[in-house]
Design a protein around this nucleic acid. Structure first.
Lengths: 201, 201
DNA sequence: ACCTGAACACCGTTCAAGT
DNA sequence: ACCTGAACACCGTTCAAGT
């Protein structure tokens, strides 16, 4: 014990980020104030400025962390199914389920809170998550299951669809009309597969 | 002249809403403060409380107005093409173009700013805009051009896709990767049509 | 009914000062 | 290097008061 610590934390930056994620998850973005974060960590509300340029940078770090988590879910879903058509379907479910399970966090990632320029890691993590989808589609094309369109174009089309479903679900614009969310995801998966397949089925 | 007016406006509510839309369009949501609106209209910053329950209600009215505008664009695009496959394609372009032309306004409509309960007109206008798409799809089904899936399910799938493209475009997550937005919309229109068509082409 | 002006409780950020 | 505490300029909202 009696650990020789500077003022309060060994890694205050990490603690600030974790606490921010926790507050956003449990109480939403509007509850995230520098005062609340500082108080919870037993630290001055201005201590954050030693590790982030401001609140915007903290939010960017939260978003970046979100893209990292999302990518892990996507890759995990793809590999668990051993790729293929089932792998793509699983990625669709994993994507929307992540968003619905972490609505406030997801909104920070896409809600216009963040400025791309404020954190270089953000663009990198976002790009890596997108790349997971591109890679999956390229693998499908090599097996001649999917049409030979530009992989990025294919990926953007699919990304937009799952992103749209996720956003509408979070905003509560689907439940209102007797919708089973999983049924919608399943339908979207089927119709997308039919639309980008090489088969004429 | 010498119009006998109460204090300042004949229709302050309408003026407040218009000014709010204007500020959001030109400077973004974060620039919308009750002080700014009041000052611009030559009215106290608390005058608004006579016509709205608070800032949230003002934003809900802005969102509601946005859905009304969007619906008019969608219906206009559909009718200008005389319906059919071209009509659906035109609706897709009209949808995304509206969002990209009014990014801040669009974000108010979908960014989680509004509480459905705060304004009954909001749910109504949002539902009406969605219904325009449902109606178009039903018309297509009657011509046996589109599969006989549940119209609402079909509409949610398509809505999610254009909504996703719109959001990603607004967030600047597409331009980054050498994308022509219209090319993406065109591609999405084609692949969706292929996915929901009765033809086996 | 409609609007004002002062007051209240918040917020992010700056900055001189402490260790 | 890291953190504090007071101060600053903002914000939405409340409320007694005016017409």
């Amino acid at each position: 014990m009696a650990k020789k610590r500077a003022y309060h934390h060994g890694d205050l930056r990490r603690a600030l980020l974790q606490e921010a994620v926790r507050i956003i998850h449990t109480q939403g973005v509007e509850a995230l104030t520098l005062r609340a974060v500082g108080e919870k960590l037993g630290v001055s509300r201005t201590a954050l400025y030693r590790h982030f340029t401001g609140k915007a940078a903290l939010l960017a770090a939260v978003a970046s962390e979100g893209f990292r988590m999302l990518r892990l879910r996507l890759v995990g879903a793809w590999e668990r199914q051993g790729g293929g058509r089932d792998g793509l379907d699983a990625m669709g479910f994993a994507y929307v389920h992540f968003a619905v399970a972490n609505p406030s966090h997801y909104r920070v990632m896409f809600g216009g809170f963040v400025d791309d320029s404020v954190d270089p890691a953000l663009a990198e993590e976002g790009g890596a998550a997108f790349q997971a989808l591109v890679d999956a589609l390229i693998a499908q094309q090599q097996q001649t299951i999917v049409r030979g369109d530009a992989p990025v174009l294919l990926a953007q089309f699919i990304w937009a669809t799952v992103h749209g479903i996720a956003m509408l679900a979070i905003d509560g614009l689907l439940d209102r009309r007797q919708t089973d969310l999983d049924a919608l995801i399943r339908f979207a998966n089927e119709r997308i597969a039919a639309g980008i397949s090489t088969q004429k089925a």
